[in-house]
Design a protein around this nucleic acid. Structure first.
Lengths: 207, 207
DNA sequence: GGCCATAAGATACGGTGCGTTTCTTCTCTT
DNA sequence: AAGAGAAGAAACGCACCGTATCTTATGGCC
C-alpha cells in the first residue's frame, strides 16, 4: 500500500541510532514486510536495509546471506511449537494438526513461503537443517505421537507406524505445496488423509 | 580435467561457422558438459557460450533464459518414453519402472538435476508444464496402467486406484529427492513400495 | 556462379544485486 | 571524560543477466 513506511521513529526527529535487540527486531519486521510486499524472489538485502532504515553491513554482521536472514524472520514470526491435539480420533487429530500447520503462514503471500522453501532446498546445509528441524522437535514427532495414541486405542495397526509412514502426511503435503505452488487446500488434506494415510495405517499386517 | 576442450573443429583450422542443427547440438552438448563440470547453479550463459565456441546472443536467439536452455539439454539427453514393464507382479513392475526412472540421470551430477528441478519449481509456468508433462504422457500414466493390470490380476484392491494413489510413488520419490538432495537409493524405493504403496493398494475397502 | 537475406560471431553495454571495504559518527560503558 | 564497539553511509569490485550493435561468413536462389 504505502510506498514507504516509517517504522516507529518520528520522521522529522533526530537520527536515533538503534542497537542490539531493538535493531534486530526492526530488521526482521522489515524482512516480513518486504516478503509481504514483493514476495521472496524480489526481496533484496538493499530493500530490507532501506525499509528497516539501516544499512547492508548491519545485515551482514548478523546473517551470512539472504536465506539465513529470511529464515530468521520466518522463525521469529512462526507460531510456537504446537501441542498435538487429542480428540480421541486419529482422523480429527491429524486434520486439526495439519490444518493449523498449513494455515500458519496465511497472512503471508503464498509465493513468499514457497520461495523460501524452494531456496531452502537449494542449499545443502539449509536442507539438512530443515529436515532435522522437522523431525527432531517438529511436526513429525507430533505426528508419531498421535499415531501411537491411535494405535493404543486400536484404531490403527501399530505395525504400520514406521518413520516413513509417520512423516508421510507431511511429505505429501510438502510435495503438493512445492509442485502446486500453493498451500494445499483443506480438500487436498482430506484427500491425503482419506485416500492414503488412514487406509494405510489401518491396513492389516502381512498383506 | 582439461581446462578447455576443442569440441570437434581442428584448433588451428579456419573459423568454420556452424549453423542450425549442428550449432544447436554443439550448444546443448556444451550445456551438458557444463552441468557435469560445474553443476547447475554455477552454469552460466557465458560459460556455455564459451564452451560451445559461440556467443551469448546465439543462445538467446534460441532460448529465452537459462532454465529453458538447460531443460532443452536435459530433454535431449533424456531417454525416450519408457514402456511400462509387465512382469506379472506389481511390485516388480513398479520397482523396475521407478528404478530406471531414477537412474536416468546417473551420468549427470546429482546437484545438476536437483538444481534444475528446484528451478523448475520456482517458475509458475515451468511448474505447470512440469505437472502436465508428468501426468499426460509421462510416468504417471504408466503407473496407472501397471496398477490397473495388477487389479485385474486380483493383486490389489481396484478401489484404491485413484489419481492420488497412482501418483503416490512418484510424489514420494520426488519429495525424497528434493529434500534429500540426492537421487533416492534403491533402498528408499523399496521402502516406499513395501511400507506405503503396496500395503495401501492392497488394503481392503471400507476400512 | 555471383547476389543477398540470414544468421553467426564478437564485443560492449546498462542493469541488478551480491557481499565487502572504508570511514565517520553515535552511544553505551566504566 | 574517555574510549571501545557498533551503527550508519557510501562506494566498490564482482558476477552475471539479457540486449544492442556491428561485422562477417554461409548457403539458398535466381
Amino acid at each position: 500500500m504505502a510506498e514507504d513506511v516509517a517504522e516507529d521513529a518520528a520522521v522529522g526527529g533526530k537520527p536515533v541510532r538503534r542497537r542490539g535487540g531493538e535493531l534486530e527486531r526492526a530488521i526482521l519486521d522489515a524482512v516480513w514486510a518486504e516478503l509481504a510486499d514483493h514476495g521472496y524472489d524480489r526481496l533484496t538485502m538493499e530493500g530490507v536495509a532501506a525499509r528497516a532504515r539501516t544499512s547492508k553491513p548491519v545485515l551482514y554482521r548478523r546473517w551470512p546471506n539472504r536465506a539465513a536472514l529470511v529464515i530468521a524472520a520466518l522463525g521469529r514470526n512462526a507460531p510456537d511449537y504446537q501441542e498435538p491435539p487429542d480428540t480421541g480420533e486419529l482422523r480429527a487429530d491429524l486434520a486439526l494438526f495439519l490444518g493449523s500447520l498449513l494455515h500458519r503462514f496465511d497472512d503471508l503471500p503464498t509465493d513468499a513461503v514457497h520461495g523460501v522453501l524452494v531456496d531452502l532446498l537449494r542449499d545443502p546445509e539449509l536442507r539438512a537443517g530443515f529436515t532435522v528441524g522437522l523431525t527432531a522437535v517438529g511436526p513429525v514427532s507430533s505426528l508419531g505421537l498421535m499415531m501411537r495414541r491411535a494405535a493404543d486405542r486400536g484404531e490403527i495397526n501399530p505395525a504400520r507406524i514406521t518413520p516413513r509412514t509417520v512423516s508421510l502426511p507431511l511429505d505429501l503435503l510438502r510435495d503438493a505445496f512445492l509442485v502446486g505452488g500453493a498451500v494445499p487446500s483443506d480438500r487436498v488434506v482430506a484427500e491425503v488423509l482419506d485416500e492414503v494415510v488412514l487406509p494405510l495405517l489401518r491396513a492389516p499386517s502381512g498383506n
